[in-house]
């Protein structure tokens, strides 16, 4: 069983998600979007990582995953990025790594601080 809040609208319905014999049920939602969100959060929750990367010249760049990656990989991915250094002339849109903690997802530069 899992408890969470639906984030699809400001109502923020409290959801209870349960699995019995392979069937997932969602309770607490006010509309169908909550059911879909609850099922996703239960079976395969994903998050976009936005974080910082050190530049070779000592400055900072910001980066994101081009698409959400599995939620349980977020901390590990952030730690990994913390050890990377990108070149001083990095620019917005540069791909730092391909297939970053998920197939088809890239780690891309979003800004130069």
């Amino acid at each position: 069983m899992m408890n969470t809040i639906c984030i699809m609208c400001p109502m923020g319905c409290p959801l209870t998600i349960e699995e019995k014999d392979g069937v997932i049920t969602v309770q607490g939602q006010t509309c169908p979007r909550g059911k879909k969100y609850g099922e996703q959060e239960y079976s395969a929750p994903v998050r976009t990582l936005t974080t910082l990367i050190r530049r070779a010249d000592g400055g900072m760049a910001s980066a994101k995953t081009s698409a959400p990656i599995p939620k349980d990989k977020i901390r590990e991915a952030a730690e990994y990025v913390g050890k990377l250094t990108v070149s001083a002339d990095s620019k917005i849109g540069d791909v730092v790594e391909e297939n970053f903690f998920a197939d088809g997802v890239n780690l891309v530069i979003t800004g130069i601080a």
Partner: peptide, 8 residues
């Protein structure tokens, strides 16, 4: 988008 991308 992220903030810096929107600004850019």
């Amino acid at each position: 988008l992220t903030g810096p991308e929107y600004a850019d």
